[in-house]
Design a protein around this nucleic acid. Sequence first.
DNA 1: CGAGAACGCGCG
DNA 2: AAAGCGCGCGTTCTCG
Length: 604
Amino acid sequence: MIQYDTNERQFEVITTLDGLEDLLDKIGDGVAALDFETTSFTPQTGEVRLAQVCNKDVYAVIDFFAIGGFASVAKWFEDAAWIVFHAGFELRWFQYAGANPTCWDVGHLRRAIEGGGHFTLKKLVGWELGIEMSKEQQASNWSAPELSDEQLLYAARDALYTWDAWEKLKKRSDAGHMRAFNLLDGMLTAVIEMEETGLVLDRSVHQDLVDKWELLAVDREAEVRKMITEDEVANLNSGKQLSDFFSKIMPDHILEAWPRTEKTGALSTANDDLKQVGALVHGTPLQDTLILLSERSTLQKYISSFGTGLITRATMDPNRRVHARYNIAAAITCRFSSSAPNLQQIPRDRDFFGERLSVRRSFIAPEGKQLVSLDYSGIELRVLALLSGDEQLLDDMINGDVHLEVGSHMAGRKLDKKITADKEIRQSAKGVSFGIVYGITALGLSAAMKRSYEEAQSYIDFWASRYSKAFAFRDAVQTEAFDTGGYIRVIDGGTIWMGKRPSITKCANYPVQRAALSIMASAIIRHHETVVDLRSHGRDIRMASTIHDALIDEVAQADAQAALLAMKADMVGGYKDIFPHAPTDRLVEGGIGPNWGQLEDVEV
DNA sequence: CGAGAACGCGCG
DNA sequence: AAAGCGCGCGTTCTCG
């Protein structure tokens, strides 16, 4: 039984080429909502069965099986601009059919107004239209020769609601919102390119790495088992079982000092906490056990998160590549997220059980090619300086060294960057400055640094006096949020819903993180245009990844230098788009190399 | 049996 | 109020 609202608009079903031509003529070079139903998730393995279109004049469902297929008419859609939910999906089908129509993602407009996040059409329709949407037909069989009335109706409604939601959002948006929208939406084609390019995984190199981790893990397991039997703790992965065990055997004074988990109050088994408790029983076998447990946990993390899972993904791919998703504006601040797999969390190179570990070396440029990568240096502190107009912070960022300044205060003397001990102080000063960008309190900083409250407070005081405008910025943001009932206006023109009484920590960080994203978004848009242009001139160059403040291209050996220069120009350009008068000295750094772990620094 | 909470940890 | 921001994901465990 089909549930029709009596006021609901009636759609027509298009089953002929003439009918499609008439429909598209009516839309002309105007704007309409569009949604596809397809027989699979990818154009390589399926077909577009239905397209639903809707605006104030038209409301129709096109049956491509009846009119002889989608591919031959895909170009007909290039005159209009299409409003789509999750436009990357529809765009892929168009591109596969050799068409490139304008697609605007309605979700990006929502994110430009409210801030980013992950949501379905059903959610959006609930928020914007107050309608409870049924999605029961979504997984139905779109290959069937005859589609049921229910199938057609539910398909049609997706376009109707997409259109209504777009109209509603347009009414709520101003010029700033549209600027932010264009920034987010403008990244669509670049993102499709990065997702399609992926990164080649050298499976044998990576397997060797995983084998090493396995050996090290087996060794730790055996050592721990000399101290903790299987009867005592059946599964060493289980924090709960470990907590129960230690609660039983440890003396009260140790248990009192043992950090607890947040929700259940169990003994924390976080690595830092295991080591900290270990220090309380310094020199005992128990300390050894706790250290071994933390080492085992690290190895377990690497094996499960960065091990054979990646190899399997590469093996499944015809080109032995790992393809991640880059989800535009998935974070509140509209930063990207990456998923399936998350290539934005591949470990950095580090010392690892006496060796230099590089997981990133497993991601290679294929024969005859190079990876080219640049990142913005210190972008968040730079952005904070620019947003707050803090000349001292900007000057230290560009002509001096913020972390050395803060470190010198901490040490009570002038630090020398060439001395190892001073480098360590500088490193911990870096942590202080980052903490401050995140809005840390003296209490939090003292815990993080394992220093007294007074000492932590003195670092914050120093920071607040040297960079007073930057430090005061958070309060201005909070005042704005209170005044507007919870919205702040960010640098690219968009707004973010902060909640009615946002914390000072969020106020300190959101505008900064957002501005960094705005810069990168602009750079990505520029760079994709550049890359398409270079390709049309015979260069072999593709965008491959973005990791928040970094870009990676995969480029033919001969084109690597040119790609690097182009990337630099685009990243500097993106920065100047957002902060036109800001200095660009020492803005980007990076290099060229055979894999992600060996990018030789190049002066740019 | 599956969904979701809790914990923990990789990245910027 | 929420205790330093933002993510995704693997594992364990509980709940229905």
